[in-house]
Design a protein around this nucleic acid. Structure first.
Length: 313
DNA sequence: TGCCAGGCCCTCTTTAGGGCCTT
């Protein structure tokens, strides 16, 4: 029997419901069960506490994962990470990751899966800016989610899309990107396993979220940490639709949510979309019979998304 | 003056073009 790493009957991840929350700052709480509001948070900087102590949970999780990934097909031998287009400085680091994976049969214990989403002032990675981010570590535990508005220091022309207004992001306490990056790095670092890798998952990550994030980091002379890998769920959804012959009119996040009966009352708010994708991802990996080693295989570096060129045919 | 995002995928294609997906 084959199961997705996120959808195993034996494995109950206490990540997506029934959690209390810890707020670093702010009063607005987002959750999967209670729906989401487009109203201003007023104090936009929020982290959550979710359920149990993470150490205890990790212990159980590790045991479960050891059971899940005991199958030969899920060992590191199956991992074949594509290094095409990787710049030389990154290549050495990337080889280190490959070596690390190859030397560890217990791959799952090395990988932290974080679903993320951004809201922006528009589609141009060059001229537009990020105005909201949301992150969720699917392992759950304390402070497993991270979300905040971001002050882009400019007018927001597309409030009709996400409900985020210029006034909202100009409030005191809303960080600018330069202030947020160190905190974001610290958040991800706090979630990863020692010497582990992080899979950051987003819908249309390759051509939207990752390039946007990359350019924002570049503006502040910051590079993605070498242990960050990205996964785009758009091609996964495309593959599911193709291989299973699903009658999906679209593979947008909204359409996928509808298809899998996932309620999202605040689409186009970062954390609401993160929560939706957090529920869609297990469905996709299950349908594709994709273990975590498969997700690693599907992953790419941030620099790959920037350096890739349009295919010539 | 005109443009104003860009990469992937599909097909009525491959020496191309249009739709999709993200905000």
């Amino acid at each position: 029997m084959f199961y997705s790493f996120l959808q195993v009957p034996r494995c109950r991840f206490n990540t997506l419901a029934d959690f209390s929350r810890f707020r670093l700052l702010g009063s607005r709480i987002y959750g999967l069960e209670g729906g989401h509001s487009r109203k201003s948070t007023g104090k936009p900087f929020i982290a959550k506490t979710e359920g149990r102590n993470r150490t205890t949970q990790n212990s159980k999780l590790s045991k479960i994962k050891r059971e899940i990934f005991a199958e030969p097909s899920l060992t590191s031998a199956a991992v074949n990470v594509n290094t095409t287009g990787i710049s030389q400085p990154y290549k050495a680091e990337y080889c280190d990751i490959q070596q690390m994976i190859a030397e560890n049969e217990d791959l799952a214990n090395l990988v932290t899966v974080i679903v993320f989403d951004i809201e922006t002032t528009g589609f141009s990675r060059v001229s537009d800016r990020i105005i909201e981010i949301g992150f969720r570590d699917l392992q759950g535990g304390e402070n497993s989610t991270f979300q905040t508005l971001v002050n882009p220091e400019r007018y927001i022309p597309n409030s009709h899309v996400h409900g985020i207004t210029t006034q909202m992001v100009k409030r005191p306490g809303v960080p600018r990107m330069g202030e947020l990056i160190p905190i974001l790095l610290q958040y991800v670092k706090s979630r990863q396993q020692p010497e582990g890798i992080v899979l950051l998952v987003a819908h249309n990550a390759r051509t939207f979220d990752v390039p946007f994030l990359y350019h924002e980091f570049s503006r502040y002379s910051t590079e993605f940490p070498p242990n960050w890998l990205f996964v785009d769920t758009l091609p996964l959804a495309r593959e599911v639709k193709k291989s299973r012959g699903l009658k999906l009119s679209s593979i947008s996040l909204t359409a996928l949510g509808d298809f899998y009966n996932i309620v999202n009352n605040s689409a186009h708010r970062a954390m609401a979309d993160v929560d939706a994708l957090s529920l869609i991802l297990p469905k996709l990996t299950f349908d594709l019979k994709l273990p975590i080693s498969g997700l690693v295989k599907e992953s790419f570096r941030g620099s790959d998304a920037i350096n890739s060129k349009k295919k010539t045919r």
